[in-house]
């Protein structure tokens, strides 16, 4: 933890409170507990998160480059990346469209039961993934409530890649709704009134005034839903069927390698997933900073 240089703690024993404000750049603080809380925070963070995560990097560095490439790009592994990332992209896109409509409906319209529906949008955050997994499988299985109807139309959902998309759509559902909702709530009616009084049709007002204001939050919601879906395990494994090369997601492949005591193989795949996650985290931080700046600019212009 060399990155943390603490500027303003008063360690010198001969200093008195009276001399501190003159000698130090930040003013003397009377708030207690900085050293102990920062110390504990960094200690606990290192113990629980940083040192264990470093294990993946160290294990990866114990492999030769060829071993790493071989383990991380075998055909079965590549097929699992295509499924995990492909299905996550589709599910996040579905959530952008329908999550956007749900957010719009919840903010703009009044209807009975709205408060309860609003609260239930967070269900995928609160419901254990295994429960979601078996419930979706029971529904979309060929003899299930929804699966039997779809089967007659010739559509198979459970135990196919389409089932993976369904589970990942469920998991990502709250992200787009919850990022778009506050932006729509804060959006001032004056802009729409101005556009309308200048002769814009409702569709033009939506396309040129409302949509550009909401767009950054839609993209952020998409990225959050994608990032969550790519690593998802519990809700997917029941409905996926888990056939190698066809419906086997990357996290399941890691578990399979672990069960075969192939620690190196599991770690190489995990490393690829971690790099994707960290890239997504970085992108999401940039996106959120961008949409905050945009929001501020819109507000200061009014």
């Amino acid at each position: 933890m060399h990155g943390f240089r603490i500027r303003s703690d008063p360690p010198k024993p001969f200093m008195t409170a009276a001399t501190l404000p003159l000698r130090r750049n930040p003013p003397f603080r009377i708030m207690p507990g900085f050293n102990i809380t920062l110390g504990f925070t960094i200690f606990y963070l290192s113990l629980i998160v940083l040192i264990p995560l470093a294990a993946i990097f160290l294990k990866t560095f114990s492999l030769s480059w060829d071993e790493f490439v071989h383990a991380a790009t075998a055909p079965r592994v590549m097929a699992s990346y295509r499924l995990s990332f492909g299905a996550s992209l589709i599910a996040a896109a579905v959530n952008v469209v329908f999550g956007g409509i749900v957010a719009w409906t919840l903010v703009r319209y009044e209807f009975p039961g709205k408060k309860i529906i609003d609260a239930l949008v967070d269900l995928p955050f609160a419901l254990p993934t295994a429960v979601a997994g078996i419930a979706l499988t029971a529904l979309y299985a060929p003899n299930g409530w929804l699966g039997s109807g779809l089967e007659q139309l010739g559509i198979k959902v459970a135990f196919t890649p389409l089932g993976v998309v369904v589970a990942l759509t469920f998991i990502g559902l709250p992200f787009v709704v919850r990022t778009v909702q506050p932006v729509l709530e804060e959006f001032e009616a004056e802009y729409e009134e101005a556009a309308a009084s200048l002769g814009a049709s409702r569709l033009q007002t939506f396309a040129h005034v409302i949509f550009p204001a909401v767009m950054p939050s839609l993209i952020t919601g998409f990225a959050l839903a994608f990032a969550r879906a790519a690593g998802e395990y519990g809700s997917v494994i029941f409905i996926a069927g888990n056939m190698p090369m066809v419906s086997e997601i990357t996290p399941l492949l890691i578990v399979t390698k672990l069960e075969q005591y192939d620690y190196a193989g599991a770690t190489a795949i995990a490393m690829v997933m971690l790099l994707v996650s960290f890239t997504m985290l970085f992108a999401i931080n940039l996106l959120q900073a961008w949409s905050r700046r945009r929001g501020q600019r819109l507000r200061t212009q009014s």
């Binding site: 998160v49 264990p52 890691i254 770690t267 996650s277």
Partner: peptide, 19 residues
């Protein structure tokens, strides 16, 4: 860094302790 565990797949969260 505090947010890191949210961006890591649950499987990887288990794997690190196996390693």
């Amino acid at each position: 860094l505090i947010d890191l565990p949210f961006s890591v797949s649950p499987i990887i969260s288990g794997l690190i302790y196996v390693l």
